[in-house]
Amino acid sequence: MTDQNIVKKEEQLVGDLLETRFLTPRGAIFSQTEGGFLSLAVDGTDYGRVKVIRAFPFTDPARYLSVRQADNEEREIGMIEDLDVFDPDTIGWITRQLEMRYFVPKILKVREIKEEYGYSYWWVETDKGTCRFTCDQNGVTKLSDTRLLISDIDGNRFELADTGGLSAKELRMVDLYM
């Protein structure tokens, strides 16, 4: 390899790392694999199965999606700035992937929070069904003044979208952890 070539190769590598490529319906063709995953071809390059990751899962869940290769290295292929510009099928597939990847039940009702031996035991109704989970001292993160993210000791996550929507009794229980 001549020096010139090497320089070019390295520059391209660095360029790839620095540049953000936005995927649009014009260049990027998404499709669904037989197994229900997502695959992608961009400008004729077929990437096979890809992963979709939210860059701002809490503040902007439907925008700035990073599409990455499904192997161990997970290199970014490009970003989707806004999902809405794609056709309904694609939106459906990508949403399905996101729903599969992010399992963050929304807490609708707090039935009970019990504290014992340094752990808090929660019993809640979520949009995914009734659930009990256990948190340690640092389980509750404030996303905003009224929005809470609750992580349990196993790594499950729950969202309390609006503490204003809770009854006074529920609020009293939750307030201890805010």
Binding site: G35, G36, M100, V104
Partner: peptide, 18 residues
């Protein structure tokens, strides 16, 4: 392992299924 959830998949002839 995904976010707050995990999936068990198998692959058959290069395609993955949940």
């Amino acid at each position: 392992g995904l976010v707050g959830v995990g999936i068990l998949t198998y692959s058959k002839k290069g395609t993955s299924f949940v």
